[in-house]
Design a protein around this nucleic acid. Structure first.
Lengths: 358, 358
DNA sequence: GTGAAAGCGCTAACAT
DNA sequence: ATGTTAGCGCTTTCAC
């Protein structure tokens, strides 16, 4: 483990280049209004000294940090068993990097950590936050609202009984869970299936609720009504999918199709169907959600699913936040190139990917 | 997206408590040498004003950031298909949080990003770095060395031809890959198997190389020599495992056991074995590595594997780094409670977990 | 034990 | 176009 060494300052660069600190500062920050020969001299001095601006000093005066917090609330460990989280993070990271922003990761393990996160955000260490509000009734959105930090949510936040529900400033990005679910179920009905079951996700997450709603939409729409016995609650995990599938087969032996809330759940269902001697898709057609390629392509049979672009979702969240931040900084500029207020919600499209399972 | 508001300063707290800024500062930072009644008044003022120290101002003078960078180099996307990464991060996050340090995540997508990371680290934005040097011949260790940032590596770094190889200051944490591999292979031999194959991981990672070495150790040790035809190179992925298993079966139809470099690989092997009508473990016994519980327990049959505690590995890396940092700060203190120099390598133990596959 | 004062390295008015 | 200057909010000697 090496020792840190002291770094050259602006002052040192200025001395070496034979100019004032202000000039060096100008060059370092884009360099408008400095004549070329001088600028060049400064750049050489910077190079020679290996000068890197002290971010703390800079933040102290600019009140900007070029850093964004990513808050991931994961009381349960689901986040760590599917690659969802990693993909979002990658999208976010790419976008932030492209804009020279740093990513400060805040993982929470439960209520105890909420206060810590709220304090951190309120402390003005970062310019904004990207928050994955994974569970209903999560106090985090409220706390964050109070902290007054520009925030973009990942997934439709549930404001529940919270009175701040009406806040028009809330921005979030989500995929079209309901629409995707509709497409999945419609596809199964188009295949001629009539006893289409649904294995839900964890219903304390809006994504699961929305997918269930989409299922209901189509079932009632097409068949006039839906049989609640065809819906089994689960939790987005493979073992949850297994359990639910068994339940479903016992209760309604005549099911001829299953729409699973995500691919992992579908995997569990597939396993049970095979064990029970049901052929897929001949006897029972199966559709998943997410399209985690390593999962869907290697399922047996390969899984028909609703694709959402998770990485893009992360990237978009970051983009929206950064745009909002720069917009706020530049004030209410109404000229041609002005930033518009970010839309309060962005819903990414989903597409049905047909493979062998349905 | 809410607007950020200006926060109360030390000055404000001092005014409210009727003391000097210095006194407030003392109380806020542990409060030694301030008489209780005064300290209490200060604490109340802090509370009432909702004062949170400005980290930038503090860093400017202390030259500390209470922040640690986590660098994850992932040219390939393996990191995102298995939960390894997420688990490490969780361990790291827990430990950092416990010591009030922030986690700055630096994801790299290739060589182009290396310079960026090096610059960031050299820029003195963080007190130290935790680096996952996933691939051989990675220039990152060298760059980081030059940046002069206290660093702990995850996994034995490969210094290859790098002349800095001899640097005694390098600290890393790894699991006992070689020992774990030995245990796995020994177990298979104890079961009476003689044609034990090995599907390697990506051999540009030291973990894969070490596991292969462990396999060789035991095979030559027990059988006098090992048959290179029983070793098939792969890449830690399920599909890689499938491909390798097919190869192996074609080449050596008499294999009666397989040691796979990780659980995901074993999963692929299991699939092929089933497809080819080989019973597991009767015809072919299979052992994995990692013990990703959701994978191993739901494999069919449940997978015997070598367990490593990934989260603990993350936690330990963080602990080592923080200890090194505080040690460095406190200077060379030789009294009783002094920090010892962190060990240059920590190898975590592995354990064989017996399930049904071997 | 407590306060006064001097910066940490930088940016942004304001002069020139 | 460039230089001068005044802080940003905090910690930390140094007096008292």
């Amino acid at each position: 483990m090496t020792e840190a060494v002291s770094r050259p300052t602006l002052e040192a660069v200025a001395a070496r280049a034979g100019v004032s600190r202000a000039t060096v500062s100008r060059v370092v920050n884009g360099g408008d209004g400095v004549r070329e020969p001088l600028a060049e001299r400064v750049r050489r001095a910077v190079e020679e000294l290996g000068y890197v601006p002290n971010q703390a000093a800079r933040s102290l005066v600019t009140r900007r940090h070029d850093a964004v917090a990513v808050v991931i609330a994961e009381p349960e460990t689901r986040v760590f068993t599917d690659p969802f989280f990693a993909l979002q993070l990658r999208g976010i990271s790419k976008e932030l990097t492209a804009h020279d922003n740093q990513l400060v990761l805040l993982l929470t393990e439960g209520r105890a950590d909420h206060a810590r996160v709220a304090r951190y955000l309120a402390g003005g260490h970062v310019d904004g936050a990207l928050v994955f509000s994974l569970h209903l009734d999560d106090p985090l959105p409220g706390l964050i609202h109070d902290a007054g930090v520009p925030t973009v949510f990942g997934g439709r936040p549930d404001w529940g009984a919270d009175t701040r529900a009406a806040d028009p400033g809330v921005v979030y990005v989500d995929c079209d869970n309901r629409g995707g679910a509709r497409a999945a179920v419609r596809h199964l009905l188009d295949l001629g299936r009539r006893r289409v079951a649904h294995i839900t996700g964890a219903l304390d997450q809006t994504s699961a609720v929305d997918r269930l709603d989409g299922y209901r939409d189509v079932m009632t729409d097409v068949l006039g009504e839906y049989d609640p016995r065809l819906v089994e609650e689960s939790d987005f995990t493979p073992s949850g999918g297994e359990r639910a599938m068994r339940e479903l087969l016992d209760r309604c032996p005549d099911v001829d199709a299953v729409f699973a809330a995500n691919d992992l759940t579908a995997l569990g269902a597939l396993r049970v169907l095979r064990a029970r001697g049901r052929r897929v898709p001949e006897d029972v057609a199966v559709v998943g959600f997410d399209d985690m390629v390593p999962v869907t392509e290697q399922a047996d049979p390969p899984l028909t699913t609703v694709r959402q672009d998770i990485e893009e979702m992360g990237r978009l969240m970051a983009r929206l936040l950064l745009r909002g931040l720069s917009g706020a900084r530049e004030g209410t500029d109404t000229t041609a190139g002005a930033q518009e207020a970010p839309p309060s919600e962005v819903i990414l499209p989903t597409t049905l990917i047909r493979r062998a399972s349905a």
